[in-house]
Computed example of a mutant assay.
Amino acid sequence: MNELTTLERRAMAAISTPAGRMLIVAADQRNGMKAVMTDAPDGPDSVTADQLAAAKADLVRHLGNHAPAILLDPEVALPRIVDDGTLARGTALVVGMDASGFETVDGLRYTRYVEGVTARSVRQLGGDVAKMLFYLRPDRQGAGSRVGDEIRSLVKACEEEGLLLIVEVLTYRLDGESEEEYRALFPQLVADAARICVECGAKVLKLPYPGSAQGSAMVTAAASGVPWAVLSAGVDHDTFIRQVQIAVANGASGAMAGRSLWKDSLAVAPEVRRQLLTSRALPRLRELQAVVDGAPARGAVTDQGAPTIDGVVTRGSTGP
Score class of each variant (00 low, 15 high):
Q188W: 13
V190W: 04
V190Q: 05
D192W: 08
A193Y: 07
A194N: 06
R195I: 00
C197F: 08
G201V: 00
G201Q: 07
G201N: 07
G201R: 02
A202C: 13
A202W: 00
K203Y: 04
K203S: 06
V204C: 15
V204I: 13
V204S: 13
K206Q: 11
K206R: 09
L207T: 00
P208H: 14
Y209S: 02
A213E: 14
Q214A: 15
G215I: 09
G215V: 05
G215W: 06
G215A: 08
G215D: 03
G215P: 02
S216P: 10
S216G: 10
S216T: 07
A217C: 08
M218V: 06
M218E: 14
V219R: 04
V219F: 09
T220R: 10
A221I: 08
A222C: 04
A222W: 02
A222M: 05
A223Q: 09
A223S: 15
A223P: 07
G225R: 03
V226E: 11
V226S: 06
V226P: 02
W228A: 02
W228K: 01
W228P: 00
A229C: 13
V230P: 03
L231R: 02
S232N: 09
A233E: 11
A233Q: 11
G234N: 03
G234D: 00
V235D: 04
D236E: 13
H237Y: 12
D238L: 11
D238K: 09
D238G: 09
D238H: 10
D238M: 09
F240H: 11
I241P: 00
I241E: 14
Q243P: 00
Q243K: 03
V244A: 11
A247M: 06
A247Q: 05
V248H: 01
V248Q: 09
V248P: 06
N250I: 04
N250R: 02
G251S: 09
G251Y: 06
G251T: 09
A252S: 10
S253F: 02
S253Y: 02
M256R: 08
M256N: 10
A257V: 14
G258S: 09
G258K: 02
L261I: 03
L261C: 05
W262V: 09
W262I: 09
W262T: 07
L266V: 12
L266I: 07
V268T: 06
V268A: 12
P270D: 09
E271T: 14
E271K: 12
E271N: 11
V272Q: 14
R274T: 11
R274E: 14
R274P: 00
R274I: 03
Q275Y: 01
Q275D: 11
L276E: 09
L276T: 06
L276G: 04
